[in-house]
Nucleic acid binder design. Structure first.
Lengths: 347, 347
DNA sequence: CCCGCAATCCGAAACGTTTCGGAAAGCTAG
DNA sequence: CTAGCTTTCCGAAACGTTTCGGATTGCGGG
């Protein structure tokens, strides 16, 4: 391992001045700086992270803590997150650590331990919950972090999110505008903030349209094809089945399509469907039959700002510069149609 | 952050003795050790990794470097590796770092940089190639590493592998024993050691049975359903089509099944099929129709020994204790049958 | 000639840990 | 009583970096 001392010797300077030259401090002669940098790179010098961390408090290592859950090992979303974040932090010369916690561990204890070790500069928090203890813990300890999403209650921390409430408003409003009044919502697990926000948006549109909220038209669960299938099957068997569905996810929509097909119902003739599209690699709503209309917002756009914001938080950049709520886009295809007028009781 | 000094103060001992007590050195009174450990845990002391690494050279952090490749983001195998290793190292109180390198980076330069930074205790190398520069580099620099697989040429480094040559021998021999003489091999990308080893095994059985090697019966590629489909379709269209197939992977077999079905050929009536089964979560050979006979060796069994061997390598345990070649198991189902005697030229 | 200032540089301390070398105390054997 | 051993402890150095405080040089202005 080549150290600062080696570089210093090779250019006949003190360790101090070499350090200052390499870190672009002000009081070093421009020509000296070049000499030092040349020597450093020709010797293959890399600053020792441990030593730097010890004195400056910065290690250049950030972490994502993920707790195991059923299906963890085949979750494309999680995989997308890891690959995306890892690449973005690498690009910025930082190390990205993935720590997998067992399902039965107390997650706050895990953070506590990781923080105590003192090797980490910050954390990225994904899939925030409505009252997320991780956010509370890190905020109280003043440890830098960035959230992929945001809690509805307070948002005074770095985050990147999409406007999930507006996603739902946009989708559901299009359905009410087409005359639909019985609209099903197949949503993610209820405690996640995005599920909550979408439910809010859904209720808001219903209220504005004067449609009473009907809880039998709302389902929650892990966002899988299976959830979509079961939920749709189930709802369509109810006394007052929905004439339109908003699915929180393309996989859910896929399941709903399958359920409707198995019931002999046509899309959009009998039931209109809209989904939210995260643009994950394994699902392509344009190839559905009929092609699926979506609120579109690629998850892959999250990684650069998340990495940027976390490094910003570590550098104490002002909060305003390190939060963003991105817009989605509506892509109209062929899975929605005006409500068919027929002789049925109004829900 | 609570430091050794804090613990020392609380028990009225020197920092030295506290350190020795915590690390189970010999020259500390048994009762003192308990007092120290109690105090440490009640204060919530966690050793500072950076400081430890600086003086002892150990950080407790190991890394896997993965270079992006097409389909990287939806590769179940890679995901299985990351999840498995991460959990195993966590269990041992170590940090597991995933570093994603861009596709166009020089991989040795990446290792060089990571090593220079001096924060890593060792590496795990997956998917070794026939002459793997990563192994050569790490070995020459005497940096601890463990290989998931092994190079055929030399094996004097920690590794965990299955006997891929024998996997192929076992599978192919069963086919020749059933009378088959034209046997197709749909294999992984040629430069991986396991592909090479399986090819060796395949050729060995052929040689023993006096069957000349026919290169039109061997295909290589990324082990996907698509490869299986295309290769099988292609081979069956040849002048002397195979009467049996050995697929390096269950996904490949799935593709082969589809190809044979589309040609109106029956399994095992017209063509016998055997595959190697890594027991990945998304593929279940027992549910094929007909159920697929396999050489079976769950990939998930690799992670504990790999983690164990790498920590062993870091602790300078003797080589013999930190290498293993595991046995596979043959599971007979219904995808093979004796060669039908018919009027055809002998290949 | 002297003072003050700017531009460059450097020594030494500090971060938290491990470890080397030795010290103190108690005991046993001669 | 003393020499030597064992048990238990400690001071100080070391790891590689950053940074505080100050030192040196050269220059212009008075």
């Amino acid at each position: 391992m080549v150290t600062l001392k080696d570089v210093a010797r090779s250019v006949n300077l003190s360790v101090t001045q070499v350090s200052r030259a390499l870190n672009d401090h002000s009081d070093v002669n421009e020509e000296t700086r070049r000499r030092v940098k040349d020597a450093a790179s020709s010797l293959g010098y890399e600053p020792n992270i441990s030593a730097r961390k010890l004195v400056s408090g910065r290690s250049g290592i950030v972490a994502l803590v993920e707790q195991k859950y059923p299906g963890f090992t085949s979750d494309f979303l999680f995989f997308e997150i890891v690959a995306g974040l890892s690449a973005e932090f690498s690009r910025r010369g930082m190390q990205f650590v993935l720590h997998v916690a067992e399902a039965d561990e107390d997650i706050i204890a895990v953070y506590q331990k990781l923080v105590g070790i003192g090797a980490l500069d910050g954390f990225v928090i994904t899939k925030p919950m409505v009252n997320d203890p991780r956010i509370a813990f890190l905020a109280s300890r003043k440890i830098p972090f960035v959230v992929h999403g945001r809690m509805p209650s307070h948002t005074n921390y770095p985050h990147f999110d999409i406007d999930n409430e507006f996603v739902a408003v946009d989708a559901v409003k299009r359905l009410t505008d087409l005359g639909h009044r019985r609209i099903g919502l197949i949503n993610g697990i209820a405690h996640f903030t995005y599920s909550r926000a979408r439910l809010e948006g859904y209720r808001k549109v219903l209220a504005e349209a004067g449609i009473p909220f009907n809880e039998t038209l709302v389902r929650n669960g892990a966002m899988t094809e299976e959830l979509g299938y079961q939920s749709a099957l189930d709802m369509m068997g109810q006394p007052d089945p929905p004439t339109a569905l908003f699915c929180s996810n393309v996989s859910i929509a896929q399941g709903a399509y399958r359920a409707l097909a198995s019931l002999g119902l046509s899309i959009p003739g009998d039931v209109s469907v809209i989904a939210h599209d995260d643009a994950l690699p394994n699902t392509e709503p344009a190839e559905f039959s009929p092609p699926l209309s979506v609120t579109h917002s690629p998850l892959s756009r999250s990684w650069p700002p998340l990495a940027e914001f976390l490094t910003g938080a570590i550098a104490h950049r002002p909060l305003a510069e390190i939060q963003e709520v991105a817009r989605h886009e509506f892509i109209e295809r062929s899975s929605t149609a005006p409500l068919k007028v027929r002789a049925s009781a109004q829900g």
